[in-house]
Amino acid sequence: MTDEINRQRLDGKVAIVTGATGGIGEATAKLFLQLGAKVMLVDIEGEKLTATLERLTPLGEVGGSIAEAADEQSIAAAAATTIEQFGGLDIMVANAGTVGTAKPVELLSVAEFEATIRTNVIGIWLSMKHCVEPMKARGAGSIIALSSVAGCIGFPAISAYAASKHAVYGLVKTAALELGPYGIRVNAVGPGPIDNQMMASLEHQLSPDDPAAVRSQLEASIAMGRYGTNEEVAQLIAFLASDASSYCNGSIYMADGGFIAA
């Protein structure tokens, strides 16, 4: 039993978490530190990154790098900084994302659609791309990309978001086939409605006058009758990052309270 418990630990592993100042990102970084990992926080918002670093520094070895998810130069620099500071890379959590603009298909502009795809697809692809060689050098690695329940089903008014999250799962399945022979596992996590700022933004976009009504409607569609927490999603991410999930590869794992079970 001790060996099984140890496989859930992240001692000696080095992780990058993008979108690290968001609810899921910070909860994941915090849990990783508690499990013994060294963590590089990556985010575009410098002030928030500084504040997050201040909160997490007492928990372990943590660094920060300002980067825009879909900008290759800054993501490459964040990976290089991680290797310079911590000596390698074992885990990539490609978490940076946006819900984008909530509008019917015919009302979305090209710019609005492209902005969501750029962050949610190109950003995750770049995170994958720039962790492959460092992980090959280690002989193993785990890449976890954040998809969504909207990566498996349709969701009215957020077509760009749903398209982007479906694309993430396609990236994951393809990368898993390519990288499996190198000991690198690639998986996706699909959160359902989570009690955080991104979900609050979506609620407000869908119903500016009564966002609480959107939440009530969504909660009624969840088997467990409630939104999830950032920490619950982080627990699933940590499992996929750890050796306890050593035979998990190329799949999407839901943290949705039964939202898509029907």
Rank of each mutant, 00 (worst) to 15 (best):
M1F: 03
D11E: 10
G12S: 08
V14Q: 01
V14R: 09
A15V: 04
T18D: 00
T18C: 00
A20R: 02
G22T: 03
G22Y: 03
I24S: 07
G25F: 04
G25P: 02
E26R: 13
T28R: 04
A29G: 09
K30D: 12
L31A: 01
L33N: 08
L35A: 05
V39T: 13
L41I: 01
G46T: 14
G46M: 02
G46D: 13
K48V: 00
L49G: 03
R55M: 03
T57A: 13
P58Y: 08
G60W: 07
V62D: 11
G63Y: 04
S65M: 12
A69R: 06
A70Q: 14
A70C: 05
A79P: 00
A80C: 02
A80M: 03
T82K: 09
T82F: 06
I83W: 10
I83P: 08
I83C: 14
Q85E: 15
F86S: 10
F86W: 07
F86C: 11
I91V: 15
A94R: 02
A96Y: 04
G97I: 11
V99Q: 01
A102H: 12
A102S: 06
P104N: 10
E106Y: 04
L107N: 14
V110Q: 11
V110T: 10
I117T: 04
N120W: 04
G123T: 11
I124K: 05
I124N: 03
W125E: 13
S127Q: 13
M128D: 12
E133D: 15
K136C: 09
A137S: 15
R138Y: 11
R138K: 15
G139W: 11
A140L: 10
A150L: 10
G151L: 08
G151K: 11
C152T: 14
P156F: 07
P156R: 06
P156D: 08
A157I: 10
I158C: 09
S159W: 05
S164E: 05
A167M: 06
G170F: 10
K173R: 15
T174N: 11
E178D: 14
L179E: 12
G180V: 09
P181N: 06
Y182N: 11
Y182Q: 09
I184E: 13
R185Y: 13
V189N: 00
V189A: 02
G190C: 12
G190I: 00
P193H: 10
I194F: 05
I194G: 02
M198Q: 14
M198G: 12
A200R: 14
A200W: 12
L202E: 06
L202R: 07
H204P: 00
D209I: 13
A213E: 15
S216N: 15
S216H: 11
Q217W: 01
L218Y: 12
E219V: 09
A220N: 13
A220D: 12
S221C: 12
I222A: 01
Y227D: 02
G228Y: 04
E231L: 07
E231P: 08
E231T: 07
A234T: 11
Q235D: 13
I237F: 03
I237Y: 05
L240I: 08
S242T: 12
A244V: 04
A244M: 04
A244D: 02
S245I: 06
S245H: 11
N249K: 06
G250D: 09
G250K: 05
I252Y: 06
I252M: 15
Y253T: 13
A255D: 00
D256Q: 01
D256P: 00
D256R: 01
D256V: 01
